[in-house]
Simulated scan of single mutants.
Amino acid sequence: MGDPDRWGVATDVGLGLGCAAAIAVQAAALAGSWGGTYWVFDCAVGVVVTLLALVRRRHRGWTAAVGLVVAAVAVLVADLAGLPHEPGPATALPLAVVVASAVGALPLRPAAAIATGGLAVVVAAMVSAGPTAVPVWNAVAWLVAVAAGAALRLLDARRRATAEQVRRDERLELARELHDVVAHHITGIVVQAQAAQLVSGGQPERARQSLAGIESAGSDALAAMRRLVGILRDSADAAPASAGPEQLAELVARFERQGVTVRLAVPDDDPGWPPEVTATVYRVVREALTNVARHAPGAGTVTVTVADRAGTVTVEVVDDGPAAPTRHPRRHGYGLVGMRERVEALGGTLAAVPRPGGGWSVSAVLPASTRERR
C-alpha cells in the first residue's frame, strides 16, 4: 500500500499543481475577455481556497466552513462590484476538495451541514450569474464532492465493520477454544477425582491410577492454556492451539483412563485435509467424548469412526449409555453449539441424536477441502 504520509504529500502536490494550472488558465481567460485587472480578484479567491484545500487534514470541518464562507463572500462582492461571476473554476476545484474531505470524514450532522452549505453556494451562484456556465460548473463540482464524500464514508464504514467482525470472530474463537480446553480437561479431572474417592479405601492401586490421571489431565490443561496464551501474545514460537486427527489416539487414551473402552477407527494414511478440517474433526471428537463423560456415566463402550469417502469427511461418535430422556435437555452449555458452528462454518452438517435402545450418536459431515468457500 505504500507509506500513507508519502501518499498524502504526493496527493497534495498534485492538487497544488492542478489548482495552480487552473488559476493560470482562468487568469489568462479573464484577461483576454474582460481585460484590465478583473482577473486579480477571481484568482485571489482561488489561491485562498487552494491554500485551505492543502491544509484540510489539520481540521477538515473548519477548512471546509471557511472555504464556503470565502466562496459565498466572493459571490456577493463580485455581484456588487460588477466583477466576473464567482466561484470560478479555479475556486470550484479546491472548494470541491475541502467539501468532499469534510463530508467523508466528519460525523453525520457536521458533514450534512457542510454539504448543505455547499448547496447554498451553488444556489447563490445561480442567482448571481443567471444562465451562464458559472452555476453549471459549480453544481457539477458540488455533486462530485458530495458523491466522493459519501463514497469515502461508505468505505470507512465497511472498514470499521470488517474490523469489528474480525474482533468478534476472534472473541468467539477464543471463547470456543477456552470452552473446549477447560470443559474437556476439567471434566476428566472431576471424573478421576470421583473415582479416587470411591476406591481410596479398598482399592489403593486404582486410587493411585486415578490420581495419576488427575495429574495428567491437569498437565494437559496447563499445556493447552499456555498454547492459548501464546496465541494471545502473538508469540512466534507458540505451539499450535488446534490438534489434528493424528492426535486422536492420545485423546482416546486419556479418555479410557476413566474406565470406558473406546474403539477408534481413522484413515491409515495421511488424508491431507486442510488444517481447519483436521482441527474441526479433533474438536468434534473431543466434545463428544466430554459429553459422554458428563451425561452418560453408565456407558461402557464408545466407538469413534473417522473416514474420508469421495472428498467427504465423516465423523461419528457413538456410545452405549443407558436410555435417558433427560440427557439432551440438560446440555445447556456451549459445547454442542460450538461444534455445530465450527462444522457449519466449513459447509458441513452436525447431528446429535439418541440411539434406539440407549446411548447417543454424534455425527458430522465435512467437505474434505474448503477452498471453494474461501
Results as ranks from 00 to 15, higher is better:
residue 273 W to P: 03
residue 256 E to Y: 07
residue 250 E to H: 13
residue 247 Q to F: 13
residue 209 Q to N: 01
residue 283 R to M: 06
residue 254 R to I: 02
residue 284 V to G: 01
residue 241 A to H: 05
residue 254 R to T: 01
residue 224 A to S: 12
residue 272 G to T: 03
residue 262 V to G: 03
residue 248 L to Y: 09
residue 227 R to V: 04
residue 244 G to Q: 09
residue 220 D to S: 11
residue 232 L to S: 00
residue 247 Q to W: 14
residue 266 V to M: 09
residue 205 E to S: 05
residue 225 M to Q: 13
residue 256 E to I: 04
residue 274 P to C: 01
residue 236 A to I: 08
residue 208 R to P: 02
residue 277 V to T: 06
residue 258 Q to L: 14
residue 278 T to Y: 00
residue 286 R to Q: 15
residue 255 F to A: 11
residue 271 P to F: 09
residue 213 G to I: 08
residue 237 D to Y: 06
residue 251 L to F: 08
residue 226 R to Y: 07
residue 251 L to I: 09
residue 277 V to L: 10
residue 245 P to Y: 13
residue 211 L to R: 00
residue 248 L to W: 13
residue 238 A to W: 07
residue 280 T to Y: 10
residue 261 T to R: 15
residue 226 R to D: 13
residue 283 R to W: 07
residue 285 V to K: 03
residue 275 P to W: 02
residue 265 A to M: 08
residue 270 D to T: 04
residue 242 S to K: 11
residue 261 T to G: 03
residue 228 L to V: 14
residue 209 Q to L: 12
residue 282 Y to S: 01
residue 226 R to C: 02
residue 231 I to G: 00
residue 274 P to S: 05
residue 283 R to E: 13
residue 205 E to H: 06
residue 279 A to Y: 08
residue 215 E to A: 14
residue 216 S to A: 13
residue 272 G to P: 06
residue 245 P to L: 11
residue 277 V to C: 05
residue 252 V to R: 04
residue 221 A to M: 15
residue 281 V to H: 11
residue 248 L to D: 11
residue 217 A to N: 14
residue 220 D to Y: 07
residue 235 S to Q: 13
residue 211 L to C: 01
residue 237 D to P: 04
